[in-house]
C-alpha cells in the first residue's frame, strides 16, 4: 500500500494485472451493453418511427407515450440515473454492485439513446420507396425489414459507432459503483494515488479502443455508401 502511495512510482507487478482486468471489464460491459441495448434500441427505434403520424403503423397515441418515456430518461445525467435505478437493479440482477450490475442501467440508457438514433435515420427514408414496395404487394413488416432498414444502413452504422463512444463514457461512470473497468482503474490507481501516468495510460487505451471502432465504422459505412 505504501509503495503505491509514493507519487510517480509505478509498481507494475500490481498494476499490470489490474490493468488487464480493467480492460477486460470495460470490454465486457461495453460489448454486452452494445449488444443488448443496441438490439432493444433498434426495436424501440423502429416502433417509434413506424408509429409516427402517417408512418407505416401510424399510432400517434402510442408514439406520444414512447416518446415521452425516451425523452424523460435521456436527459438524466447517467451517474444520477445509476443510483436512481439501484432498487430496480437489485430486484433484477440480484445485486447493485459489480460489473454485471452496472450493465443493467447502461442497457436502459443505451436502448433509449439508440432508439432515437434509429428513428432519426429511418425518418430520412423517402416515402416513395415505401409506396413502391407496397405497390408490388409487400406487407408493412416486409417493407420495414426488406426496404426501409437496408436503405439506412450507412447512417445506422455511424450511429452505432456514436453509441459505442457513449457506452464507453457510461462504463467509466459505472466503475464508481464497483463496475470496475478502465474508468475505475484510472481513478483508483491514477487519480487517488496521485499517479498521472496511470491515468494517461487509461486514457490512451480508451482512445485506442474508440478510434478502432470509429475507423471500422467509417470503413463499413463508406463501403455501404459506395453505391
Amino acid at each position: 500500500m505504501s509503495s503505491l502511495f509514493s507519487a510517480g512510482k509505478t509498481d507494475w507487478s500490481i498494476i499490470g494485472p489490474a490493468l488487464i482486468q480493467a480492460v477486460q471489464e470495460t470490454l465486457y460491459m461495453v460489448m454486452l451493453t452494445l449488444l443488448i441495448g443496441g438490439i432493444l434500441g433498434m426495436i424501440l427505434g423502429c416502433i417509434l418511427w413506424s408509429t409516427r403520424k402517417g408512418s407505416i403503423f401510424s399510432n400517434p397515441a402510442l408514439y406520444k407515450v414512447l416518446e415521452f418515456i425516451v425523452n424523460l430518461v435521456r436527459p438524466i445525467p447517467f451517474i444520477i440515473f445509476l443510483s436512481a435505478v439501484q432498487p430496480l437493479t437489485i430486484t433484477i440482477v440480484g445485486t447493485s454492485l459489480g460489473t454485471t450490475a452496472a450493465i443493467f442501467p447502461m442497457c436502459i440508457f443505451c436502448t433509449m439513446a439508440t432508439s432515437r438514433i434509429v428513428e432519426q435515420s429511418l425518418i430520412n427514408v423517402d416515402y416513395g420507396v415505401i409506396e413502391a414496395s407496397y405497390a408490388m404487394g409487400a406487407s408493412r413488416l416486409k417493407t420495414l425489414f426488406w426496404v426501409v432498414i437496408p436503405e439506412v444502413m450507412p447512417p445506422l452504422v455511424l450511429g452505432y459507432a456514436f453509441i459505442f463512444i457513449g457506452i464507453m463514457d457510461m462504463s467509466a461512470m459505472a466503475g464508481t459503483i464497483g463496475g470496475g473497468g478502465l474508468g475505475d482503474f484510472a481513478i483508483q490507481y491514477g487519480y487517488n494515488k496521485f499517479n498521472p501516468i496511470i491515468t494517461w495510460i487509461s486514457v490512451g487505451i480508451i482512445l485506442v479502443i474508440v478510434q478502432c471502432i470509429q475507423q471500422f465504422a467509417n470503413f463499413l459505412a463508406k463501403k455501404l455508401l459506395q453505391h
Binding site: D126, G128, V129, E131, A132, M136, G137
Partner: peptide, 16 residues
C-alpha cells in the same frame, strides 16, 4: 397487385 405494375416520376428505386 401482382397484376398492376407502377412506375414513378422519381423512379423510387431502392438505392441500397
Amino acid at each position: 397487385r401482382k397484376d398492376i405494375g407502377i412506375i414513378f416520376q422519381h423512379f423510387n428505386l431502392f438505392d441500397s
